[in-house]
Design a binder for these strands. Structure first.
Lengths: 236, 236
DNA sequence: CGGCATCCGGGAAGATACTG
DNA sequence: CAGTATCTTCCCGGATGCCG
């Protein structure tokens, strides 16, 4: 294993998570355990051997942990250890730094976890000062619950294993007008709505999104996220 | 140039600074411009072609800028652009994350910039609540000025080009008892003092350090920096 | 089908030597 | 001092195959 052999904290961090695909894998695990095939699907560029290598190395370093779920759902999942989860501020900082670099949503990948993390990096507490909102995002099989409250933002994955009861429960709640507003769309469409100024109602008309609940809630939600200013090229 | 082809901010950041040695180079530039040979000396593990490649790529990406100094000091230096300087929070976050990983000061490199950055990541505002201190660190030709004031910490490189006047000025000030306390030692010794509990006075006796000014100031300074707790291996 | 291990080509990283 | 050129090594990436 190649090391920087440097006592600096940054290089020691890079010795562990500096290999190619290591941090993208961590990104996919930030919101909870994922199966091998989930990771492969969310990271279409990584080949299977590299994914296996990274998971093995990260597990050996104590960043990631492999866990076998109990019998009913006999799957093996990977999850962050507490120390691995502590990488989130570094991920946020890196994401915020690159916020203004060019994006090609047509050709590039964009996973649900990437979208959820991007909300964390672009949340504008000032713009959300008086907001009290709850929106759920449904991206294929990935569901996230986002809340804006007291000028703070939280988002988490909705646990869908054995979720039949929940689904029925939520469905009936919404029918009664009590459930959260839910937006069904793929991550790229959601990014276009939040960051590209795409009108959510227009996205619904184009059938690239579906909204259960109040579109006005979605519109208010969008206002709470702003991309940072690109740096002007003055002197250092 | 190899890309993750992912619209996520993290992967876009890694497309730019994810290559090997890119972030260590940025680390060395955080406190101001450095010459090619300065970088090579501070990063003993990097070979000259890689260093050249990285500087070229980082310059092309707008992270780093190459500048030729005016005639008297006819040197070419590399410096961070404003956008490159904005990487500092990410560096701090990474360094903080790796703070508890094992270190071998005997065999590993440790540059003056690494030491200065480590102070930024381990500053304990609570411990420094009532402190008002100024200490200068002299590590070979690298000099840093550190201040603790109003529970905030600042550190910067002391510009030594054409610094003869300053040197004389500061020397006479200290003779009058007005100059800041200065600690002469190499970065590893300073790390042992700050993080390893090495008594500064003992270091002076062992002739691995020299203190101009008040040793008690150094002792107070040390108290303002603490390593974070290692994470306990509980559940995620 | 999920979870890898294996094989191999291309390309980045590393060491060294050399030049303006 | 500030790099470039060359060569070697090893990691990455893609395809394929194995195995529960």
């Amino acid at each position: 294993m190649r090391s920087y052999d440097d006592a600096c904290g940054i290089t020691r961090a890079l010795d562990i998570v500096g290999e190619r695909w290591a941090l993208p894998v961590v990104r996919e695990l930030v919101f909870g355990p994922r199966r091998y095939s989930d990771l492969a699907a969310a990271l279409p560029g990584v080949s299977t051997n590299i994914l296996g290598d990274r998971l093995k190395h990260l597990a050996g370093a104590g960043v990631v942990r492999k866990r076998r779920l109990s019998p009913p759902a006999a799957a093996t999942v990977y999850e962050l250890t507490p120390w691995g989860a502590a990488l989130e501020p570094a991920l946020i900082a890196l994401g915020a730094w690159a916020a203004h670099t060019p994006v090609d949503l047509e050709q590039q990948a964009f996973s649900p976890a990437s979208f959820a993390l991007s909300l964390k990096t672009t949340f504008d507490a000032a713009a959300a000062r008086d907001a009290d909102l709850r929106v759920q995002f449904v991206m294929g099989h990935d569901e996230f619950d986002a809340r804006i409250e007291d000028a703070t933002f939280t988002i988490g994955r909705i646990h869908d294993s054995a979720g039949m009861f929940d689904a029925v429960h939520e469905e009936s709640s919404r029918a009664a007008g009590a459930g959260p507003t839910r937006v069904h769309a793929d991550p790229k469409t959601l990014a276009a709505v939040i960051y590209g100024g795409l009108d959510p109602v227009a996205a619904v008309r184009a059938e690239s999104a579906r909204i259960e609940g109040m579109p006005s809630t979605v519109a208010s939600f969008v206002q709470c996220f702003t991309l940072p200013e690109p740096p002007k090229e003055g002197s250092s």
